[in-house]
Amino acid sequence: MNRQPLLEQVTQTMAVGSKSFATAAKLFDAPTRRSTLMLYAWCRHCDDVIDGQTLGEGGTQHAVEDAQARMQHLQIETRRAYSGAHMDEPAFKAFQEVA
């Protein structure tokens, strides 16, 4: 498990995953920027899980059933995060902070 502080992780995720979002986020005040980074990390993670990518790169085609299972997993984990359950995945920790 990555022990890097959450803010550092999500900042790096945005810097690699979307240079335009990373640049735009610099225009926000610090609390809004932090929330933006946290929400982006969750969105990027969900998109990557569905597309079989890492930070928007290297997508893989999946069977419809596999995509549905991935979506269901994301829905379950998002609901768990929203309910306050302990989350190990940084993207869901980030979601919890924003939610």
Rank of each mutant, 00 (worst) to 15 (best):
I50F: 14
F95A: 15
K19M: 07
L6D: 01
A41N: 10
E77Q: 12
A91M: 03
G56Q: 10
V49D: 08
F92R: 00
T32K: 14
L6R: 00
Q96G: 04
F95D: 08
H73C: 13
G84Y: 00
L27V: 05
F21W: 11
C43H: 15
I50R: 14
Q96P: 07
L74N: 09
P5T: 03
G58K: 07
S83P: 02
T32M: 11
R44K: 11
F21E: 13
D51Y: 07
E65N: 10
H62V: 02
K26S: 01
A25F: 01
K93D: 02
A24M: 04
V49S: 11
H45F: 05
F21G: 04
V16E: 15
A67F: 08
Q68P: 06
I50V: 15
A30G: 06
L27D: 06
A22H: 08
L39T: 13
Y40G: 05
Q96T: 04
R44M: 04
P31F: 04
E65L: 10
S18I: 07
Q4C: 06
A91N: 01
D66M: 12
Q75F: 12
G58V: 03
G84M: 03
M38F: 15
L74Q: 09
F92D: 00
Q9Y: 09
L6V: 00
E8S: 14
L7M: 10
L6T: 02
S83R: 08
H86D: 08
V10M: 05
L55N: 14
Q75C: 11
S20A: 08
S83V: 01
D88L: 07
E57I: 12
Q61Y: 14
M1T: 03
V98C: 12
A15R: 14
W42K: 10
R80G: 00
S18F: 04
K26F: 00
D29G: 10
R34V: 06
P31M: 06
E89W: 00
A85F: 03
D48N: 06
A24R: 12
V16G: 06
W42C: 10
Q9F: 08
Q96C: 06
C46R: 12
P31L: 05
V64W: 07
D66A: 14
K19H: 11
E77N: 09
V98T: 15
I76H: 15
L39G: 12
T23S: 09
A85K: 08
Q72T: 15
L6K: 04
L7T: 07
A24G: 06
S18W: 04
Q9E: 10
G52K: 07
E97K: 14
T11F: 02
L6W: 01
D51Q: 11
Q9I: 13
M71R: 15
R70Y: 11
R34I: 08
T36W: 09
D88E: 10
R33V: 00
C43G: 15
